[in-house]
Design a protein around this nucleic acid. Structure first.
Lengths: 148, 148
DNA sequence: CGCTTTTCTTGAATCAGTCAAGTCTTTAAA
DNA sequence: TTTAAAGACTTGACTGATTCAAGAAAAGCG
C-alpha cells in the first residue's frame, strides 16, 4: 500500500520537508486528500470542514495550490471534470476515468517506468511529461447498464 | 496533408454524411475548425462571426456539441485550458501542450496504431480509449526564455 | 406549399475558480 | 519570551466558461 493515510505527525513532517508552514488548514487538506484520493475541490472543502468548521473555500484553494506546487499533491483534471487531487505523487501513474459517472481509478503505466514519453515528432517542443488518461466505463456503471 | 481545408461543398457533404441538417452556422463552424485546429470556443465564435455576423454564442456551443457528438470534430481540453476543437478525427493522434502559453500541437502516437491501450490493472473498468497528453515548452516560449 | 422537427436567438442563471484588501498566525530572531 | 516580518487566512466581490429555458426561425419531408 503506497498511500496509507499518514499520521498527523507524518503530515507535519511532509509539510516541513516541503518548506511550508504548519497550519491547521494545511494539515486538514493534506490528510483529507490522503483519505479520499481523486476527490474534487468541493468534496475536499466539505470534508475539511468536518474537522475545521470555519475554513474558507479560498483557504482550501490556496492550500491545494501550495501543496500541488511543492509536489505534495498532484492535480488532475480530465476533460469535462472539475479539478481533482491525489496524494500519490512522483511515481508516474495514470488514470482511468468512467465516461458515465466520472469515477477515477489509478493505473500503473503499462509499458515501463517512464513510458510513452517518446513522441514521434515533437514539433520542436521540449517534452517533460506524458500524461495518459484511459476512458471507459467503471464496474458499477457497467452493472447498472446491464440491469436497466 | 490529412486536414487540408475542405471546400464549402465538401463541408456540406460531411454534414450530410453525419445526418445533420445543412445550416450556415454549422458550415461556418466546421470550416473554421478546419482552418484553425485547436482553437478554443471563444476564438471559434469570433472567427465564425467574421462570416456570419449575428450568430449567437449559444448556436456555436450547440453546433460544436453536435459536430463533436457525430464525430466530425474532436474536443480536447488539457488541464487548465478551456475546450478546444479540431477536425482531425479518427486517427488516434495525441497532443503536446505548452506549459507556458498553452499552445497545442499534434503528435502521432509513438508506439503503433492503437498504443498505450493496455492498462496493467484496469480495476474492472472497460477501457475504450487511451488519451495521451504530452506537456512541455513550445519552440517560441523556449526562445523567449533564452532571451529574457 | 405547408407541416413537423430541429436549430437558432435571446436573455438569464450557474458554478468553478480568481482577485483584492485587510486580519491573524507562524516562525525566527532579539 | 517578546516581537516583528513574512506568510497564510477570511471576507466578499467578481470573472468567465458553460448551461438552461422558452420562443422564433428555418430545414427538409410529403
Amino acid at each position: 500500500m503506497p498511500s496509507a493515510v499518514p499520521s498527523p505527525g507524518e503530515l507535519e513532517a511532509k509539510l516541513r520537508q516541503a518548506d511550508l508552514r504548519i497550519t491547521r488548514p494545511r494539515l486538514a487538506v493534506l490528510g483529507t486528500v490522503y483519505e479520499h484520493p481523486h476527490a474534487d475541490t468541493h468534496a475536499i472543502i466539505d470534508r475539511v470542514r468536518v474537522q475545521l468548521a470555519d475554513v474558507s473555500h479560498q483557504a482550501v484553494y490556496d492550500v491545494l495550490a501550495a501543496l500541488t506546487e511543492t509536489g505534495l499533491l498532484r492535480r488532475i483534471q480530465p476533460s469535462g471534470s472539475v479539478a481533482r487531487y491525489e496524494a500519490r505523487v512522483g511515481d508516474n501513474h495514470h488514470h482511468v476515468v468512467c465516461r458515465s459517472c466520472g469515477a477515477v481509478a489509478d493505473v500503473d503505466c503499462a509499458v515501463g517506468a517512464a513510458p510513452c514519453l517518446d513522441a514521434s515528432d515533437d514539433h520542436g517542443y521540449v517534452i517533460d511529461e506524458a500524461e495518459v488518461t484511459y476512458w471507459g466505463t467503471c464496474p458499477s456503471c457497467l452493472a447498472n447498464q446491464q440491469h436497466p
